[in-house]
Write a protein that binds this DNA or RNA. Structure first.
Lengths: 122, 122, 122, 122
DNA sequence: GTGGTCTAGACCACC
DNA sequence: GTGGTCTAGACCACA
């Protein structure tokens, strides 16, 4: 977790969970780690994890079985993808478009930058 | 101004001003509208505008002549561009890269999306 | 059982049992299904069924014969009915009254709604 | 607030707010008391009030203006009413129907009970 | 063991 | 002044 990010921690963790779902690491109907487990693992207060869960449950990405734990929703993959796509299209895309135009960055430039990013990580 | 955005109002206004500088709408050494004018125009508390100015002054994009007003700095164009580029490279690029990968959006797709955006605006 | 309900599972099961008693499906002094049977049937942890039994025993609706099983109490029908009535009068009625008022639902409307419900089930 | 209710306090407060909206006491676009004010008034921890607000914002009943406070949403009345009606129809109605049948309470009886309730309060 | 709620108190960004 | 986030710790109901 990045404790200095302007992004709230509980959102950062939610994003991580969404990533795990999108990449297939966590399958539908699979139980996800308990509040306490995640709290230890991420070195964050259990309340904060709880907040993440409440947030994701509201979005129908995970659901709760009383006294047992939280589970990946059956259609979590679609839901997550749709949500992320909506956000990207509505919020990010116009910003990216505008910024690239202001900075004179072309699509081709972006492709090159991506390649460099890809290399760095490999 | 978008009062529902998670972006601080004073930042939103700062971005608008930077845009005006980058597009050449506001030239170096040109006086920019007064706090009051901007406050009325954007329907925002004057304090908030003041904060924008302080923020931009710190970044050497505008400067103040006591009792007269705020002016676009001589090298504001370069400064603004550098700052924006830095932010784009360091913060935005990795996020865009990752998100596009997760959503299976290719560079080519992005180009098409840009074209659509461009058409809508024209 | 509804694992998503905010009603505790053991209460949900207790309600089911009470219903069976009130409708006469389970007669006084009749043996009720074993913890295991109910657990399998309702797909619930046996501990939870046990809790239901303890709960109903406290309320003198069922009683236990050691090593044999649980039985419907002799006056279970009266007890159950009284309890349910008390709850309805004290808790439910004020809520229903208030909600119907807020929603502009009249007694007559309610009658119509009941008729529809009755038809659906028949 | 009823601190012994099985209903969470933050939900109780949310219900109160919804009532104020439905009865027209709080009009659309009107600012609602601040977190701290409500906390003092209800003798509850500010965090709990905050939770109520987050909860209601999620349901599009109130919204936030950065640094200013929370406001009743423009269409809060409709939203609230729809939500409450949905809950009543889907959750409460079947329960009421079933319970009244089990207890041999007729619609007419209910009408009488309501009249008594009405008198007590006046 | 699981989650859920609440408190008290801190710190921060924002208007 | 406003809300927002986080922590620490407590207590409870539930499976």
């Amino acid at each position: 977790m990045d404790f200095h990010s302007n992004q709230a921690i509980y959102i950062q963790i939610a994003d991580l969970i969404c990533e795990n779902i999108l990449t297939g690491k966590w399958q539908p109907e699979e139980r996800i780690p308990s509040v306490r487990e995640l709290a230890v693992h991420t070195e964050v207060n259990p309340n904060t994890i709880m907040r993440t869960f409440t947030y994701l449950q509201e979005k129908n990405i995970i659901y709760n079985k009383r006294g047992i734990g939280y589970f990946v929703a059956d259609d979590a993959w679609d839901t997550t993808r749709d949500l992320m796509k909506l956000k990207f299209m509505k919020n990010d895309l116009p910003y990216i478009y505008k910024t690239m135009k202001l900075l004179d960055i072309t699509i081709k430039d972006l492709g090159d930058l991506f390649q460099q990013l890809g290399k760095e990580r490999s």
